[in-house]
């Protein structure tokens, strides 16, 4: 397991979480992967056993009860309802709720760059580099001036689309200060390959320094 997890590291890996949001999602993935492997093994075993010879013939009614009511209805219903509840609980935890220490930034996409601005430093914009404070929740208000794009920092949060005329708010948080790779994740034409950005998460001191720099 440790070997598998170490193979997950990477600047764009969703399985190398750098914050609470992606940790929640990565845990969800590992749980689903184990469950899926168990169910797959069950199905393959049942298929293989069908070929063994000398089985006693069963009556149709008894078979329907086992195969359809038991395995076809009750079993998936139990698994799926549990997973659905887990998924909705996880989803609720990721929502941008009101909190005292939330930093607010804006991300505006165009082909093929990102412009970021900051509520805490009015008038200040950066291109293709988003500055955020580390260990604090950050709400990114996402929009676009041309086609649809998607704001995605795989190690910090799931993705959220930038749609003309709409503003979507994404909550992300970095555990520690550092640099995180970001991507635009909705096909937008020939420059799509290189449509990326960088997120720099600051310690409290360096965040203060960033905000106070006069341009």
């Amino acid at each position: 397991m440790a070997a598998v997890v170490s193979g997950c590291a990477g600047p764009l890996s969703t399985l190398d979480p750098g914050g609470p949001a992606t940790r929640t999602i990565a845990n969800l993935w590992w749980v689903m992967l184990l469950g899926a492997m168990a169910i797959f093994a069950l199905v393959v075993a049942l298929l293989a056993l069908a070929f063994r010879s000398g089985r006693a013939p069963r009556t149709q009614v008894a078979s329907e009860r086992v195969w359809i009511v038991g395995l076809g209805l009750a079993f998936p219903a139990a698994v799926l309802l549990s997973l659905l509840a887990y998924g909705l609980w996880a989803g609720e935890r990721l929502l941008p709720r009101e909190a005292a220490d939330v930093a607010r930034v804006h991300a505006q996409a165009e082909r093929w760059s990102w412009t970021f601005s900051y509520d805490d430093a009015p008038g200040r914009t950066t291109t293709d580099i988003l500055h955020i404070p580390a260990s604090r929740p950050v709400d990114v208000a996402i929009t676009t001036t041309d086609v649809i794009h998607s704001f995605w920092v795989p190690r910090l949060a799931g993705k959220l689309d930038a749609i003309p005329g709409h503003v979507n708010v994404l909550r992300l948080e970095a555990d520690v200060a550092g640099t995180y790779a970001g991507l635009s994740a909705e096909y937008s034409g020939p420059g799509y390959d290189r449509h990326s950005f960088t997120v720099i998460a600051h310690t409290p001191d360096s965040w203060r320094a960033f905000l106070e720099v006069d341009e």
Binding site: I25, A36, I39, G87, L88, G91
Partner: peptide, 17 residues
């Protein structure tokens, strides 16, 4: 099985596209 995975909203936010 992977279809059920992407039906779960937070996981889809990561793997969508």
């Amino acid at each position: 099985l992977t279809g059920v995975m992407v039906a779960v909203v937070p996981f889809d936010w990561q793997v969508h596209d």
